[in-house]
Write a protein that binds this DNA or RNA. Structure first.
Length: 216
DNA sequence: AGGCCGATGCTCT
DNA sequence: GAGCATCGGCCTC
């Protein structure tokens, strides 16, 4: 693949989607192993689609044992997908203007999700910059370095909440391909070194090292 | 390089 | 009514 040539279609065919069994495991394990995986966003009528990014930062959120989790006090209208089938998306709206994207883990009835916090752009940077609109962002590495930047850059909003990434339930009737998929690292990718730190932006359970970040 | 703060509206108590 | 799983701008060191 020629990663810097935006005029040629990205060769996404070698990317293998992660199976449901990948997500149906302990949440911290999934969060760690998602570092280095690819997030692919197919968009109709976009020249450089699919947008392809590589995940660099995640956080694990669990259920009743995790005071920082939306699921800490049990199921509600907002968090119910966290208790649903692993491999579904949990997207929520926060701070009055931002969306955050999670992938559901564990097992049906057991709450868990991995927040995708940051990624590096691989393909479709022109469109990513367009979706990020606002200002001139000098460096590509600053396009997706936050959970709400990531969803804005990939045009992911509440309409994707509950989307099953494995069955592709919710895909448009006229589309044979997934709008969003998570894929394994490629064979030649170097496995990243990973740091563990407290999670960002929370006030409870700050002692847990449940943030996973690719070392610079 | 790091801290503070306003924007802006939903969720849960 | 309080508290956000944030961002970007502006301020000070």
């Amino acid at each position: 693949m020629s990663k810097s040539d935006e005029s040629t279609p990205f060769q996404y065919s070698p990317l293998q989607p992660l199976a449901r069994a990948f997500f149906a495991r302990e949440t911290c394990l999934v969060a760690e192993q998602l570092i280095g995986c690819y997030l692919v966003r197919h968009l109709p009528n976009i020249a450089d689609s699919p947008l392809v990014v590589r995940i660099t930062e995640t956080e694990a959120y669990k259920g009743e044992e995790d005071a920082a989790s939306h699921a800490f006090r049990g199921p509600t209208a907002r968090n119910q997908v966290m208790f649903d089938t692993p491999g579904k998306l949990y997207v929520y709206f926060t701070y009055g203007m931002h969306y955050c994207m999670n992938i559901v883990t564990e097992a049906p009835g057991i709450a868990g999700a991995v927040l995708i916090r940051a990624a590096e752009p691989i393909h479709g940077i022109a469109t990513i910059r367009q979706f990020r609109s606002n200002k001139t962002i000098p460096h590509d590495r600053d396009l997706l370095n936050g959970p709400a930047k990531l969803t804005q850059a990939l045009a992911i909003d509440l309409s994707f909440n509950g989307l099953d990434l494995i069955t592709n339930e919710n895909r448009p009737a006229d589309s044979a391909i997934a709008q969003i998929s998570l894929c394994q690292p490629l064979a030649h990718d170097i496995p990243p070194a990973i740091e563990r730190t407290p999670r960002i932006g929370i006030s409870k359970a700050t002692e847990l090292l449940w943030r996973y970040k690719k070392s610079p």
